[in-house]
Design a protein around this nucleic acid. Structure first.
Lengths: 151, 151
DNA sequence: TCAACAGGGTTCCCTGAAGGAACTTTGAAC
DNA sequence: GTTCAAAGTTCCTTCAGGGAACCCTGTTGA
C-alpha cells in the first residue's frame, strides 16, 4: 500500500487531515492568516524548504483553502485565505489555545488575540450551537450519522 | 538539519503540532476518545502499521496526553485520555466540524454529536470567553504576547 | 508438562517524503 | 544588455512510514 489515503476514510477528522494534516500545512495557513501572503515571506518566516512550501501551497490551493492571486505583470503571486480557508482558522485558534494553556510555561503565550467585538484579550470557548452551554469532549455522545459507511 | 523541531518554535500552534502533529496521532486520539483503549482495537480500526502505532502511543504518553494502564496480570495495557488529552479533543471536534461542513458532501456527516446537557444533535461554536459573541479568524487582532521571543 | 493462544509489541527491508543547496525563469529597472 | 528579485524546480541525501514476520509473557487446557 502507498502512504495511507486519509481522504478515503469515512471520518471527517481524517478527511480534514488530508487537507491540512501534512507537516507544515497548519503553519503555512497561520502565516497567511496573520498577513504573510508571499512565497518568500512565508519561506523565510518558517524556515521551510522551498520545495515543500511549493507543494503545500499548491495542495492548499487545489483544495480551495487558499487562493493564488497575481499582483504584478511579472509572474508574482500572493496567497489569500478563501472562505473555506478562513473557517479552518477556527482549528488553528483552538490548537493554539491548547498550546497556550499546556505548553507555554512561565513565559506565557507568544501571541494574544484581541476580540474586535468587545476589545478584550480573549480566548476561544467551545459552546453548543443549540443551548449555548459549554461543549467539550466529555459533554457529548458520538452517534452514527447519515454519511456513515453503508456496508 | 534534522526533521524540523516544532517544539522549539515560539508559537503555540507549532508546539501543539509537536505533540499531535505527526501523521495518525489525531486519529489515534479520536479512537481513544470514542472508547477504543487497546492496541489491537486501535490498530485494526485504523489499519495503521504496528510500528507506527507503538511510536505514536509512546509519544502521546510521554507528553501526558494519554495514560498507559495495566489491566491484567499479563503485560496488557489500556490507553486512556488524561485531562490534558481530553482538552485536545476540542481540537478534534473543530477539525471534524470543518470536515462535516466542507467535505462530507451529499451523504452528510459520518458521525453526529449529541450534547448531553441539552439532548440535541449539535455542532460546536466558537465564542469569545469575555463577551460570549462569536469569535472566528477574522474577528480578532493578533498581538504580541508575554512569551514572544526575547531577541 | 508442554503446546497453543492472544495481546502488545520489535525487527527487518523497501519506498517515499523532508531538508538543503544550487539552478532556472520571468519581466522590470538601471 | 546586465542586474535584480520573486517564485519556483531539480538533484541528492537522509529519515520515517508501510508491511510482514518474528518475539515475549503469562494463561488455558489436553
Amino acid at each position: 500500500m502507498q502512504r495511507t489515503d486519509f481522504a478515503a476514510m469515512t471520518c471527517s477528522i481524517a478527511r480534514t487531515l488530508d487537507v491540512i494534516g501534512e507537516p507544515w500545512s497548519p503553519l503555512v495557513l497561520r502565516d497567511v492568516w496573520v498577513g504573510m501572503h508571499r512565497f518568500e515571506e512565508i519561506q523565510s518566516d518558517l524556515g521551510i524548504s522551498r520545495k515543500v512550501l511549493t507543494e503545500r501551497l499548491h495542495h492548499l490551493v487545489a483544495h480551495g483553502v487558499l487562493e493564488r492571486r497575481p499582483y504584478d505583470q511579472r509572474p508574482r503571486y500572493e496567497y489569500h485565505l478563501t472562505v473555506k480557508g478562513l473557517e479552518l482558522v477556527d482549528v488553528l485558534m483552538v490548537l493554539g489555545g491548547w498550546g497556550d494553556r499546556w505548553l507555554a510555561g512561565e513565559a506565557g503565550p507568544p501571541v494574544l488575540h484581541r476580540h474586535r467585538a468587545c476589545g478584550q484579550i480573549s480566548r476561544v470557548d467551545l459552546r453548543c450551537d443549540h443551548c449555548g452551554e459549554p461543549m467539550h469532549g466529555d459533554d457529548v455522545d458520538v452517534l452514527t450519522g447519515p454519511g456513515a459507511a453503508a456496508s
